[in-house]
Amino acid sequence: MIPTVFGLTLPFLIIAALTIAGAVAAALLRNLVHCALSLTITFAGLALLYLNLEAQFAGFVQMLVYIGAVAILVVFAILLTRGAGMPEYRSYSSNWLLGLILAAATFAVLTWAVTRSLPATAASAAPAVTVQGIGVSLMTTYVMPLEIVAILLTVALIGAVIVAMPESKKEGQQ
């Protein structure tokens, strides 16, 4: 059997620690590329948490989209905007204390709500979800959201290209 600590399985604890460590590192490190790389650890940890929750498809999609695309995109943006990604001179905003307090307050409220309001439900048996089932419901129940997402992605693609395109010759000559 999988060993447990405080009623939680050991794999969960390791993955959760990794996820949070990556997020904390992304918040604290000064070098932007290091931030992006530790963010990747968080994304991978979240994908593993999805797998831990038996959501295989969502976990692999998370890996494909976040590690394969978003992380690379972030890294490219960092290199395009900061040369070789040198450490910043001042990396925190002037009102960082306020932001930190707000974030801590949010976490406190969320934790309070989670610990207080949940009935102690035991984990039900793992649902048998096949990729085929996901595909079928994407094409039947969720076909409208799917189409909307398709339009959204196309719009985002075109929009991102237009926004990032070099300005036209006429403006460039000014």
Binding site: I20, A27, S91, Y92, S93, W96, G99, T106, F107
Partner: peptide, 14 residues
């Protein structure tokens, strides 16, 4: 926790 850290990053980093 991840949400709070994300919020902290969004609010404090420049």
């Amino acid at each position: 926790l991840v949400f709070a850290i994300g919020l902290a990053i969004a609010l404090t980093r420049r």
